[in-house]
């Protein structure tokens, strides 16, 4: 029961993304960056973006964070890399909606299917903040 819920939460590729996250490290050249911090658990993350006009050209992050936060950052950057800024903001609200509604509905279909993994968080509400932190930091970087 609860073990299954744990497995759901830490689905294979969530673990994979957190063990070998994509886009990890500091970009040699970047135009935007921000630090995010979750004071409750101590997760800390920095997101780097290189923009040309309203187009994302390169992304990366560095962190001292839990697996959920790292996986979320890795998947987020994969999703937004090389996209236009207005699309990025749509992704952001889709991801928020996914966490709030706890279902992979019509409203969030622009996110790739991989994101279904985050539905496992519905049983662990305290961990939603971990998944959201990279996205909030992204938003901060773009301000």
């Amino acid at each position: 029961m609860i073990e299954d819920k744990l497995k759901e939460l830490y689905q294979e590729f969530l673990l994979k993304h957190s063990k070998a996250p994509l886009y990890y490290g500091k970009l040699p050249v970047f135009t935007h960056h921000a630090e995010g911090f979750n004071p409750i658990c101590g997760d800390a993350i920095t997101v780097y973006l290189n923009l040309e006009g309203r187009q994302i050209k390169a992304v990366s992050f560095e962190s001292a964070s839990c697996s959920i936060c790292n996986a979320s950052a890795s998947m987020m950057l994969q999703e937004i890399n090389l996209k236009a800024l207005n699309q990025v903001l749509q992704y952001y609200s889709s991801f928020e909606t996914l966490l709030i509604n706890e279902e992979f509905s019509e409203e969030v279909v622009n996110l790739s299917e991989e994101f279904e993994a985050f539905l496992g968080l519905s049983k662990f509400p305290a961990r939603k903040a971990c998944a959201l932190l990279p996205w909030e930091t992204l938003k901060k970087a773009l301000k």
Binding site: E3, Y10, C66, S67, F124, R127
Partner: peptide, 14 residues
Amino acid sequence: EIHAHDVGTFLDAG
């Protein structure tokens, strides 16, 4: 290798 927050969630499940 394992962040404290993940430790906490795992232990709580037990």
